[in-house]
Nucleic acid binder design. Sequence first.
DNA 1: CTTTTTTTTCATAACATTTTCACAATTTTG
DNA 2: CAAAATTGTGAAAATGTTATGAAAAAAAAG
Lengths: 222, 222
Amino acid sequence: MKVLLVEDEKLIRMFIVEYFNKQNVYVIEASDGYEALSLLDTSFDIVLLDIMMPGIDGYEVCKLIRQKSDIPILFISALSEDENKLKGYEVGADDFISKPFTPSLLYAKCCALLKRVQASSHSLNEGIIRIDEDTHEVFVNDQLIPLSHKEYTMLVYFIENKRKILSRDQLLDHIWGYDYYGDQRIVDTYVKKLRKKLLEASSYIQTVVKIGYMFDTKRKDI
Amino acid sequence: MKVLLVEDEKLIRMFIVEYFNKQNVYVIEASDGYEALSLLDTSFDIVLLDIMMPGIDGYEVCKLIRQKSDIPILFISALSEDENKLKGYEVGADDFISKPFTPSLLYAKCCALLKRVQASSHSLNEGIIRIDEDTHEVFVNDQLIPLSHKEYTMLVYFIENKRKILSRDQLLDHIWGYDYYGDQRIVDTYVKKLRKKLLEASSYIQTVVKIGYMFDTKRKDI
DNA sequence: CTTTTTTTTCATAACATTTTCACAATTTTG
DNA sequence: CAAAATTGTGAAAATGTTATGAAAAAAAAG
């Protein structure tokens, strides 16, 4: 388990890190929101986020994270008021813990949250496309479309970044790895394959000349 | 800052307008939903929307606005019940304030909301032009205008340097690269293309004879 | 080891963008 | 006001980019 801990008070961080390390949990510390945002990447399993921090507060950090990620977020609140909780859920929090707490309680909450999230079967829906992330099955209008592994990875990456232009470089880095040395035009070939298989949803993958491609369920040409 | 205030009680409107004007904020008043919808255009920065109004209520107004605009909407609610908030967020509200409130609190909320929105959305707005920097989509009066890559780069460069005269050399260096060896008049050709596509906003790109061009939403000749 | 599937390369067709250019319109200069 | 310089414009030409089918190479399955 890899945790991002966002908390301005060093002492609290130390307590948590010490206990978590004992449980074999890897903790990365951030002392403010901006640091957290710069550290966060897809390798983390959960974010522990203090609400009251100098500078950008926990709510804002949460909102910014939610713009690009569904990672589980557990709020650490100094107050136990429901008002706070409400706002927390609004901005996309998954659970709460109120100060003061013991590290063991926090750890238990983390485990529970992760379990909960992992249990809820993940599925992506975009327009007429439905993806079951557990089985990697892709449906277009409820018709099963068999995709190869690279095709599947590309489609999911497109959908995770819908309405954002992705350059060939970005696609290459993410799907083939940054150390891929082959021809960049492989991306085109895979876009072709995907479009062909996606049938009526083929127009979801739009070409952005001179830059790359973009996934969008809304048609551009109307 | 330009605000659309939708509120049926004249007294409340007056309080707000008075305070906001003191803060140098321009407030346009609407006493009901339909008036608000007819007044709203892309020049506004935020909408303050009372929920309980005779005729069409705030929720409905919000829904209708959201059909064509992502403008920040702050709900003014007589009740502080969570139920209301929940429904508000469903129809697309960005934040809430409960009556009674002081004008200064409302002003603070407005500023916070605007800051939040501006931090999160990658969009440029100039007069009737709106640019989504994620998708590279350009709208004139909410009509999508497809631009080629160079046209887009030029428009963004103009807007980033609005009300600054840009020489052909500067434009060449920035858009074509300092090592471009072709004809300098290519700039003129692209200005022509841009103006044509920008329709009513074509006059935003002004010719500065013997020097270059300048982007300005205000007309020079009046 | 053979067959099948997937991945990659490549040549060419189809398409879109960029650039040039000649002349018209406008502005500046003397 | 006329000449000169500058800018506007449409269309053609040149260039660049993407789509596509087929074939080669690599990997996985049998």
